[in-house]
Design a protein around this nucleic acid. Structure first.
Lengths: 355, 355
DNA sequence: CAAAATTATGTTAACGATAACTTAATTAAC
DNA sequence: GTTAATTAAGTTATCGTTAACATAATTTTG
């Protein structure tokens, strides 16, 4: 075959320089609108640059300038409205401040977490926001990144480091309020779906649940707490519905089944609702249910889902601001931590609608 | 303040080389596991690299190697399940083939489209998949990118170029089948929400609707076609629900209102359903409704939504494969076009459930 | 009108990594 | 035991851009 693709090289500054008959530095000045260039030269250079379809090589530029004006965001799961709202807020804040955003997805895999961190760090990104689930291998790698002086901010996940800022919803309080709401409605046998106690209640939402029970002297029944062990799995997005479905079935099969359930997130709650309906029980009369996150779907389920709304956009915005601050400041600032309030949204899955 | 942050520079190959007492090329060989190095030297280098927390500078590396093993994906809207499934499939395919994926969001803004293209191109990305809505300024910029020999594949959007591959769902046929389904159910006054005829039915789904009506000799009533003009707006994600809601209200206020409606996508359909319910009409008895996309929410609405399912993952996978093929092939291959079949999913919004 | 400031351009040396080449010592082959 | 192959390094140039400095012409200032 003689129609091999001759990898036509990109036009470079010096290509233009040669054509116009100036030094490449002059061309650089024109391209960057910076420094003295005569109007005549500028026009000539611009014309030739356009003709030759010049595109600046960012690799070389960033290598020389030692910054990229780009930040990275690593998400565990892009199917979750929580993640997407986060991403949108981060992008918006970054964009306003003149930064580009590259998003990487890790699909809750430690290996992909590392691949994402590495890839971003390698590209000389100015800073990274991490919103994946914590896991050992990933965290270890992340620590290396932090220690090589790349600014990092984490959202809603464990990771302690003296220079890493932290943003999160108040999951502890949210979990507490969800449970409190059910207690206020008179429930005493309240289940939890989405985690087990074996991990020592590392999940803040579960801890909030336990705290609420404790405060009202309701004894904890471990059989009412169900869910797969807290660990990185290859389960993406919507499959948490399955955890909710199976967890609820387990709870319903108990000799003394709960009258209310708090699910660790809305997808889990929706799965649980399916199980309840399948058992021909009514929501909320037979089993009341509270979720967490207030995803857009929550208002469209039947009955609509009572849930804890967390400020997704705000978390993204604050994280981005923190990161940019770190990137741009000369001073080394102390670790900052922002924990944002959640809000109980009461809907039909706990309280019969009035009409 | 004297605790100014001394921007500790990253460790470089030659830092390690100096410490160990070898040439930086030797260190490079160790790091890249490529070329001859004695076991003794390798171990020493590895140890020092670890101690000094070495991280390879990808900018320099990629600049020299002229490739990054990274591809970019530009999405108009990340809140849409269509986009997220696409992204996941693209990531998976890319990852399997050893490529990283950077995702950019443009929020349906021409300016941000351009910013995303530019940023990706500048970073020397090996190729770009574009799944934004077409718009003049953005397309013009994209054309420049294509002409500077960066491989590009577009998904489900207009963009004609002899070297740009194209993947899409068969929107024309999908629109036809959605309408056909309603006709089969006996409907004759069928509305369309989400676009107007003024743009000359550039929207394939609308064209499919028109074709189906034509085939059954149902005359087109322009008052039954409603929606905002096809254009880039700053309206993100879920707000298409609003278009559906308002469009439906307009249709319901007609003297001779439609008995069925085809909405350009599921969010629009859901908005329309709200309007129908608000008017105290029944779905599907008074107004039947069909959406498009089969988003996860579609099964959870009440009644559940009849819709056209498009193969989101498949589109992403094929696009990624096409792009990687372009990137890796030496030969210049002719433009390829893949149009994928859609599937009608019949649910409660058009047919009363049987129980 | 000399000194200072401004404008316009060129030169040089990185940024950090690596491909391509060279040198030299070992080991294998015939 | 001489030639060829393998192993283990080092040297040089370059990827494309830009910061920093240097030069020279022109303009402004006092």
């Amino acid at each position: 075959m003689d129609r091999k693709k001759i990898k036509k090289k990109q036009t470079t500054l010096s290509d233009i320089a040669t054509t116009v008959g100036v030094a490449s530095m002059t061309v650089s000045r024109v391209i960057n609108r910076h420094g003295y260039v005569s109007e005549e030269t500028r026009e000539k250079v611009m014309r030739v640059a356009k003709e030759m379809n010049y595109r600046r090589n960012g690799l070389a530029r960033n290598l020389k300038r030692q910054r990229t004006e780009t930040i990275g965001l690593v998400l565990g799961d892009i199917s979750n409205p929580y993640s997407t709202e986060l991403a949108r807020a981060v992008r918006e804040t970054a964009s306003t401040r003149g930064y580009n955003l590259f998003i990487c997805i890790s699909e809750h895999s430690a290996k992909e977490d590392i691949a994402a961190f590495e890839s971003l760090a390698n590209h000389g990104i100015d800073g990274i926001i991490v919103a994946t689930r914590s896991n050992k291998a990933g965290d270890e790698y992340l620590r290396g990144i932090v220690e090589s002086n790349i600014p990092v901010v984490v959202i809603g996940r464990d990771f302690r480091h003296e220079t890493v800022d932290y943003v999160s919803a108040d999951n502890l309080r949210g979990g507490f309020e969800a449970t409190q709401h059910l207690i206020d409605l008179g429930h005493e046998r309240i289940g939890f779906i989405g985690a087990t106690l074996s991990g020592g209640a590392s999940l803040k939402r579960l801890q909030g649940y336990l705290n609420a029970l404790g405060e009202h002297n309701i004894s904890v029944d471990e059989r009412l707490i169900t869910g797969r062990k807290e660990a990185i799995t290859d389960v993406p997005g919507y499959s948490t519905e399955k955890i909710g479905f199976e967890g609820m079935k387990r709870l319903l099969s108990l000799p003394n089944r709960p009258t209310a359930v708090f699910a660790r997130n809305d997808f889990t709650a929706i799965g649980a609702m399916s199980a309840i309906k399948e058992a021909s029980l009514r929501i909320p009369e037979d089993v009341a249910i509270v979720g967490f996150d207030d995803i857009p779907l929550a208002i469209h389920t039947s009955p609509s889902l009572t849930t804890i709304r967390q400020p997704m956009r705000l978390q993204g915005q604050i994280a981005a601001e923190m990161l940019l601050q770190k990137i741009e400041s000369e001073e080394k600032s102390p670790r900052e931590e922002r924990i944002l309030n959640c809000e109980l949204i009461i809907r039909g899955s706990t309280v019969l609608s009035k009409h």
